[in-house]
Protein backbone atom coordinates (compact mmCIF):
# COMPACT_ATOMS: atom_id res chain seq x y z
CA UNK A 1 0.00 0.00 0.00
CA UNK A 2 1.29 3.41 -0.94
CA UNK A 3 1.92 5.55 2.11
CA UNK A 4 -0.71 8.25 1.94
CA UNK A 5 -0.37 11.52 3.81
CA UNK A 6 -2.81 11.97 6.65
CA UNK A 7 -3.92 15.33 5.31
CA UNK A 8 -4.76 13.77 1.94
CA UNK A 9 -6.86 11.12 3.67
CA UNK A 10 -8.54 13.81 5.72
CA UNK A 11 -9.49 15.87 2.64
CA UNK A 12 -10.51 12.66 0.84
CA UNK A 13 -12.98 11.83 3.57
CA UNK A 14 -14.55 15.26 3.73
CA UNK A 15 -14.70 16.32 0.10
CA UNK A 16 -13.32 14.07 -2.61
CA UNK A 17 -14.88 10.85 -1.38
CA UNK A 18 -17.79 12.57 0.32
CA UNK A 19 -20.02 9.83 1.66
CA UNK A 20 -23.37 11.35 0.82
CA UNK A 21 -22.87 13.13 -2.48
CA UNK A 22 -20.10 11.16 -4.18
CA UNK A 23 -20.31 7.64 -2.75
CA UNK A 24 -24.03 7.44 -1.95
CA UNK A 25 -23.60 5.99 1.52
CA UNK A 26 -26.15 6.83 4.21
CA UNK A 27 -28.79 8.28 1.92
CA UNK A 28 -31.72 7.12 4.06
CA UNK A 29 -30.81 9.63 6.75
CA UNK A 30 -29.90 12.18 4.06
CA UNK A 31 -33.49 12.41 2.84
CA UNK A 32 -35.10 11.35 6.12
CA UNK A 33 -33.53 13.56 8.78
CA UNK A 34 -32.79 16.77 6.85
CA UNK A 35 -36.17 18.46 7.23
CA UNK A 36 -34.72 20.86 9.84
CA UNK A 37 -31.22 21.89 10.84
CA UNK A 38 -31.53 20.85 14.47
CA UNK A 39 -32.21 17.18 13.87
CA UNK A 40 -29.67 17.09 11.04
CA UNK A 41 -27.03 18.43 13.43
CA UNK A 42 -28.00 15.87 16.07
CA UNK A 43 -27.79 12.99 13.64
CA UNK A 44 -24.44 14.22 12.28
CA UNK A 45 -22.98 14.50 15.76
CA UNK A 46 -23.98 10.95 16.54
CA UNK A 47 -22.57 9.70 13.21
CA UNK A 48 -19.16 11.38 13.68
CA UNK A 49 -18.88 9.87 17.15
CA UNK A 50 -19.88 6.35 16.13
CA UNK A 51 -17.76 6.43 12.93
CA UNK A 52 -14.62 7.35 14.86
CA UNK A 53 -15.29 4.65 17.47
CA UNK A 54 -16.24 2.02 14.88
CA UNK A 55 -13.07 2.64 12.86
CA UNK A 56 -10.96 2.22 15.98
CA UNK A 57 -12.62 -0.92 17.30
CA UNK A 58 -13.07 -2.66 13.97
CA UNK A 59 -9.42 -2.07 13.08
CA UNK A 60 -8.39 -3.85 16.27
CA UNK A 61 -10.85 -6.70 15.74
CA UNK A 62 -9.82 -7.23 12.14
CA UNK A 63 -6.07 -7.04 12.60
CA UNK A 64 -5.65 -8.57 16.06
CA UNK A 65 -8.38 -11.24 16.04
CA UNK A 66 -9.54 -12.10 12.52
CA UNK A 67 -6.23 -11.94 10.64
CA UNK A 68 -4.13 -14.00 13.12
CA UNK A 69 -6.84 -16.69 13.27
CA UNK A 70 -7.29 -16.64 9.45
CA UNK A 71 -10.99 -15.91 9.71
CA UNK A 72 -11.16 -12.87 7.42
CA UNK A 73 -14.29 -14.28 5.79
CA UNK A 74 -16.16 -13.47 9.00
CA UNK A 75 -15.37 -9.74 8.65
CA UNK A 76 -18.86 -8.68 7.60
CA UNK A 77 -20.69 -10.52 10.38
CA UNK A 78 -18.26 -9.37 13.05
CA UNK A 79 -18.33 -5.73 11.91
CA UNK A 80 -22.09 -5.50 11.92
CA UNK A 81 -22.28 -7.09 15.38
CA UNK A 82 -19.53 -4.77 16.63
CA UNK A 83 -21.33 -1.68 15.32
CA UNK A 84 -24.65 -2.75 16.83
CA UNK A 85 -23.00 -3.47 20.19
CA UNK A 86 -21.06 -0.22 20.06
CA UNK A 87 -24.17 1.83 19.41
CA UNK A 88 -25.90 0.15 22.37
CA UNK A 89 -22.89 0.80 24.57
CA UNK A 90 -22.64 4.44 23.55
CA UNK A 91 -26.34 4.82 24.25
CA UNK A 92 -25.95 3.41 27.80
CA UNK A 93 -22.90 5.51 28.59
CA UNK A 94 -24.32 8.74 27.23
CA UNK A 95 -27.68 8.23 28.96
CA UNK A 96 -26.01 7.59 32.32
CA UNK A 97 -23.30 10.24 32.23
CA UNK A 98 -24.41 13.08 29.95
CA UNK A 99 -28.22 13.24 30.07
CA UNK A 100 -28.36 16.54 28.17
CA UNK A 101 -26.44 15.07 25.23
CA UNK A 102 -28.65 11.99 25.37
CA UNK A 103 -31.77 14.11 25.05
CA UNK A 104 -30.48 15.66 21.85
CA UNK A 105 -28.77 12.62 20.28
CA UNK A 106 -30.69 9.75 21.86
CA UNK A 107 -33.29 9.09 19.22
CA UNK A 108 -30.71 9.07 16.43
CA UNK A 109 -28.42 6.49 17.98
CA UNK A 110 -30.52 3.40 17.14
CA UNK A 111 -30.87 4.65 13.56
CA UNK A 112 -27.12 4.47 13.12
CA UNK A 113 -26.89 0.68 13.39
CA UNK A 114 -28.45 0.31 9.96
CA UNK A 115 -26.83 3.43 8.52
CA UNK A 116 -24.70 2.15 5.67
CA UNK A 117 -22.25 5.02 6.10
CA UNK A 118 -20.85 3.54 9.32
CA UNK A 119 -20.43 0.03 7.92
CA UNK A 120 -19.15 1.65 4.72
CA UNK A 121 -16.32 3.49 6.46
CA UNK A 122 -15.25 0.30 8.21
CA UNK A 123 -15.27 -1.73 4.99
CA UNK A 124 -13.42 1.00 3.07
CA UNK A 125 -10.77 1.10 5.78
CA UNK A 126 -10.19 -2.62 5.34
CA UNK A 127 -10.24 -2.56 1.53
CA UNK A 128 -7.84 0.38 1.27
CA UNK A 129 -5.52 -1.27 3.82
CA UNK A 130 -5.18 1.79 6.02
CA UNK A 131 -3.08 1.48 9.16
CA UNK A 132 -4.42 2.36 12.59
CA UNK A 133 -3.91 6.14 12.50
CA UNK A 134 -5.09 6.37 8.89
CA UNK A 135 -8.26 4.40 9.73
CA UNK A 136 -9.14 6.70 12.60
CA UNK A 137 -8.43 9.82 10.54
CA UNK A 138 -10.54 8.51 7.67
CA UNK A 139 -13.36 7.65 10.09
CA UNK A 140 -13.39 11.14 11.60
CA UNK A 141 -13.08 12.96 8.27
CA UNK A 142 -15.85 10.86 6.67
CA UNK A 143 -18.05 11.83 9.59
CA UNK A 144 -17.17 15.50 9.15
CA UNK A 145 -17.92 15.30 5.42
CA UNK A 146 -21.28 13.79 6.29
CA UNK A 147 -21.90 16.65 8.73
CA UNK A 148 -21.04 19.35 6.18
CA UNK A 149 -23.46 17.99 3.61
CA UNK A 150 -26.24 17.28 6.14
CA UNK A 151 -26.06 20.86 7.40
CA UNK A 152 -26.06 22.38 3.91
CA UNK A 153 -28.92 20.17 2.79
CA UNK A 154 -31.08 20.81 5.86
CA UNK A 155 -30.45 24.56 5.66
CA UNK A 156 -31.58 24.66 2.05
CA UNK A 157 -34.58 22.43 2.70
CA UNK A 158 -35.66 24.48 5.70
CA UNK A 159 -35.65 27.65 3.60
CA UNK A 160 -37.36 26.00 0.65
CA UNK A 161 -40.36 24.75 2.67
CA UNK A 162 -42.56 27.61 1.56
CA UNK A 163 -41.42 27.73 -2.04
CA UNK A 164 -44.36 27.31 -4.35
CA UNK A 165 -43.70 24.14 -6.37
CA UNK A 166 -46.12 21.72 -8.09
CA UNK A 167 -47.60 19.31 -5.56
CA UNK A 168 -46.05 16.24 -7.20
CA UNK A 169 -42.55 17.68 -6.79
CA UNK A 170 -43.01 18.71 -3.15
CA UNK A 171 -41.17 16.54 -0.65
CA UNK A 172 -38.79 13.84 -1.85
CA UNK A 173 -38.38 14.85 -5.52
CA UNK A 174 -37.57 18.38 -4.40
CA UNK A 175 -34.98 17.03 -2.00
CA UNK A 176 -33.39 15.02 -4.78
CA UNK A 177 -33.24 18.05 -7.07
CA UNK A 178 -31.47 20.04 -4.35
CA UNK A 179 -29.10 17.10 -3.92
CA UNK A 180 -28.40 17.15 -7.67
CA UNK A 181 -27.15 20.75 -7.47
CA UNK A 182 -25.05 20.08 -4.37
CA UNK A 183 -23.58 16.96 -5.89
CA UNK A 184 -22.78 18.78 -9.14
CA UNK A 185 -20.89 21.39 -7.14
CA UNK A 186 -18.94 18.73 -5.26
CA UNK A 187 -18.10 16.68 -8.36
CA UNK A 188 -17.05 19.56 -10.55
CA UNK A 189 -15.24 21.55 -7.92
CA UNK A 190 -13.32 18.92 -6.03
CA UNK A 191 -12.43 16.62 -8.89
CA UNK A 192 -10.41 19.30 -10.66
CA UNK A 193 -8.22 20.06 -7.64
CA UNK A 194 -5.60 17.35 -7.26
CA UNK A 195 -4.63 16.99 -3.62
Amino acid sequence: MVEKALFAIFMDGIFIKNFLLIQFLGLCSFVGVTKDVKSAAGMSGAVVFVMALASTVSYMIYNYILVPTKMEFLDLISFIVVIAALVQLVEFVVRKNIPSLYRSLGIYLPLITTNCAVLGVVLLNVSSEYNFIQSVVFGISAGLGYTVVMLMMSGIRERSTFVNVPSSIRGLPQAFFIATMLSMAFVNYFWVIPI
Binding site: F24, P173, F176
Partner: peptide, 25 residues
Amino acid sequence: TTMILPPGAFLTIGSLMAIVNYQRA
Protein backbone atom coordinates in the same frame (compact mmCIF):
# COMPACT_ATOMS: atom_id res chain seq x y z
CA THR B 1 -21.25 12.74 -18.88
CA THR B 2 -22.94 14.21 -15.84
CA MET B 3 -25.55 11.47 -16.11
CA ILE B 4 -23.12 8.71 -15.21
CA LEU B 5 -21.52 10.84 -12.50
CA PRO B 6 -23.22 11.16 -9.08
CA PRO B 7 -25.44 14.20 -9.93
CA GLY B 8 -27.12 12.23 -12.72
CA ALA B 9 -28.32 9.66 -10.21
CA PHE B 10 -30.02 12.28 -8.04
CA LEU B 11 -31.55 13.97 -11.10
CA THR B 12 -32.91 10.70 -12.53
CA ILE B 13 -34.48 9.44 -9.32
CA GLY B 14 -35.92 12.88 -8.53
CA SER B 15 -37.57 13.12 -11.96
CA LEU B 16 -38.89 9.55 -11.82
CA MET B 17 -40.31 10.13 -8.34
CA ALA B 18 -42.04 13.32 -9.50
CA ILE B 19 -43.60 11.39 -12.42
CA VAL B 20 -44.76 8.60 -10.09
CA ASN B 21 -46.26 11.15 -7.67
CA TYR B 22 -48.02 12.90 -10.55
CA GLN B 23 -49.52 9.64 -11.83
CA ARG B 24 -50.66 8.66 -8.34
CA ALA B 25 -52.31 12.04 -7.76
